[in-house]
Simulated assay, not measured.
Amino acid sequence: MEAIRLRTLPLALSCIGMGSFLAAYDGHFSLPILILAAITTISLQILSNLANDYGDTIHGADSAEREGPKRAVQSGAITSAEMKRAIIILAIVSLLSGIALIWLALGDQWYLALLFLGFGLASIWAAITYTAGKNPYGYMGLGDISVFIFFGLLGVGGTYFLHAGSITWDFILPAVSCGLFATGVLNLNNIRDITSDIKAGKRSIPVRLGRSKAIIYHWTLLALGFGAACWFVALNQASLFSWLFVFSAPLFLINARAVAIHQTASTLDPFLKQLAISTLLFVLLFGIGILL
């Protein structure tokens, strides 16, 4: 259960929730699609977490000197072989759930089904190769781009399409919000691990920028994420209820301040969970607001 990292799962639900709220806002919603999309995305998130545990141990980022929470493979609680089997199982679960979702939403539209199958396979590949494999892209500082795409544009936009059967560019701004907040979680994680990542040769964004500039980057991610949501509401001239998400702003301010003042991994670590839950709360308030 520790290797699954339950505290990260609200991020998986956030992009699915946002896409579903937007679909309902435009008059399209299917509960079975929401359920299957949630199962698929949670499976992918767990897959990514397990692969990250395995990959960082193999590549040395999760060593005995690491200041953050101990990882399952690195601590010996789970063997490398056992973790490999778990990764394979989660990859299969994600694939089967994704296929069921595509069949339910798209039926005999085989060209669209193949497109979404490609998206699903790309998601599985991205989840595994972030830190696992011979050339993990997370070690090159490309994790932020991947998170923004899969938790933002693709996660929200893809969910919307599966509900509605079509696409509208209105989803872009809320998708940007989700993507930027999810990237903020990754950035906070990388700020926490900056010392061990430098030793392991992991060139994350905070390693490349340095801690002080990474903090500015973190504030920028959160500010732009909120700004995109405000822009969406302003453009759509929605009701006053649509600004309900603003009540989540203090939580993001608390997180941004924590990144600036906390220097040790142990004091910074709890704010990973705090930002993930804040993102889910933001989505719930945003979605409820636009539907009222």
Rank of each mutant, 00 (worst) to 15 (best):
E2N: 13
L6A: 15
L9S: 04
L11H: 03
G17H: 07
G17A: 12
A23T: 02
Y25A: 09
Y25M: 11
G27Y: 03
L34Y: 05
L34V: 02
T41N: 15
N49G: 10
L50H: 01
L50K: 03
N52A: 06
N52K: 10
D53C: 02
Y54A: 08
Y54M: 10
D56C: 10
T57S: 12
I58E: 12
I58R: 14
E65I: 00
R66V: 00
G68S: 12
P69N: 00
V73C: 10
I78C: 03
A81H: 14
M83T: 09
I87A: 07
I89P: 05
I92L: 15
V93I: 15
S94Y: 01
S94P: 03
S94K: 01
L96P: 09
A105V: 06
L106I: 10
Q109N: 14
W110V: 14
L115H: 00
L117S: 08
G118Q: 08
G118R: 09
G120P: 07
G120E: 01
L121V: 11
A122P: 00
A127P: 07
Y130K: 05
Y130D: 01
T131S: 15
A132I: 00
K134F: 01
Y137N: 09
G138W: 01
M140Y: 14
L142H: 04
I145S: 07
G155N: 08
V156C: 12
Y160E: 10
L162Y: 09
H163W: 04
H163D: 12
A164V: 09
S166P: 00
I167S: 12
L173G: 04
P174D: 09
F181T: 11
F181Y: 13
F181H: 11
T183P: 07
G184F: 02
L186C: 05
N189V: 05
I198N: 12
S204N: 11
S204T: 15
V207E: 06
R208K: 15
K213S: 13
I215N: 05
I215M: 03
I215D: 04
I216T: 13
H218Q: 15
W219H: 13
L222D: 02
F226D: 01
A229R: 00
C230W: 11
F232W: 06
A234M: 12
L235Y: 05
A238M: 15
S239R: 14
L240S: 15
S242F: 04
L244Y: 03
F245A: 07
F245Q: 09
V246T: 14
L251H: 06
L251Q: 11
F252S: 04
A256V: 08
H262Q: 12
Q263S: 13
L268S: 04
L268M: 13
P270N: 03
K273R: 14
L275K: 04
I277A: 12
I277D: 05
T279R: 00
T279Q: 15
V283E: 02
L285V: 07
G287F: 01
G289C: 11
I290T: 08
I290F: 11
L292A: 15
L292C: 13
L292H: 11
